[in-house]
């Protein structure tokens, strides 16, 4: 079922790949931006932390599922793996594990901005043809 869904969406986006690529990356950024907005709107630090942790966890889980797919290339798998590792580091820092001190309650809003801004750098564009299409699928999965 999962494979059929991926195949169907891939076929659809083959005709609209450039627009789909841009949209996929924008959707990922918007996903984290919405998380940051919710965190800042919440007054209770525990709720803030839960929103952040839940958002990072959902994205990490989606990446892990896509990485296991046989439809993606080794290069794309490596890209997703690298992206997943950066997300895992943010989860670790939020929780204060793996060599990190936990993010203090007073800095949760700033940390939410950090998550957003770390994705919005003017670094080199990577070859994201298939990866980006798969990121679209990640979002689809997240919405289900």
């Amino acid at each position: 079922m999962f494979t059929k869904k991926i195949t169907g969406v891939l076929l659809l986006f083959c005709f609209l790949i450039p627009a789909a690529q841009a949209q996929a990356t924008d959707d990922i950024k918007s996903y984290f931006n919405e998380t940051a907005t919710k965190v800042k709107a919440e007054a209770d630090p525990e709720q803030k932390r839960e929103i952040l942790a839940g958002s990072l966890e959902r994205m990490t889980t989606a990446l892990a599922r896509v990485e296991k797919s046989r439809l993606i290339s080794d290069e794309d798998r490596a890209s997703l793996d690298a992206f997943g590792k950066t997300l895992q580091e943010k989860q670790d820092e939020l929780a204060g594990i793996n060599g990190f001190n936990p993010v203090p309650n007073s800095q949760l809003n700033s940390f939410a901005d950090y998550v957003v801004q770390s994705m919005e750098q003017a670094d080199k564009t990577i070859t994201v043809s298939v990866v980006t299409a798969l990121l679209i699928l990640i979002i689809v999965i997240l919405l289900v």
Partner: peptide, 13 residues
């Protein structure tokens, strides 16, 4: 000609 979307601290695109 690339992805240049970013968000301000107020969430605006």
């Amino acid at each position: 000609d690339a992805d240049y979307l970013y968000h301000g601290a107020d969430g605006t695109a």
